[in-house]
Amino acid sequence: MSLDKATVAKIAHLARIKVPEADQEHLAGELSNILNFVEQLNEVDTVGVQPMTSVAPHKLRRRPDAVTDGGVRDAVLSNAPETAEGFFVVPKVVE
């Protein structure tokens, strides 16, 4: 499978990563190489095989329904570039 330049631009946009147009052609080649490498897995017949979700036989851990966290507003907000009255503050995002 190979990616074209337009697909690279689209992925970059969806990921909100700025990729200058000059770099897109080159990136398309690199990403295509990665995909081609991984595609070797298609040679294995996996009909009727369940996806492996864990190397060890673990089950999903569950927590009881108890309030054990929160109440740490200052810590939660401590890395925010801008805050006010206990809120995170960001540029206006309105429809």
């Binding site: 929160g70 507003r73 206990g86």
Partner: peptide, 27 residues
Amino acid sequence: ISNAKLFSGASTLFGSEPNTQVSFVDA
């Protein structure tokens, strides 16, 4: 209806002060 959130131990109570019911998972 639950006391805590789906993937964290922070409270689900409605109408509290902003960001007081937030764990590091929720943020």
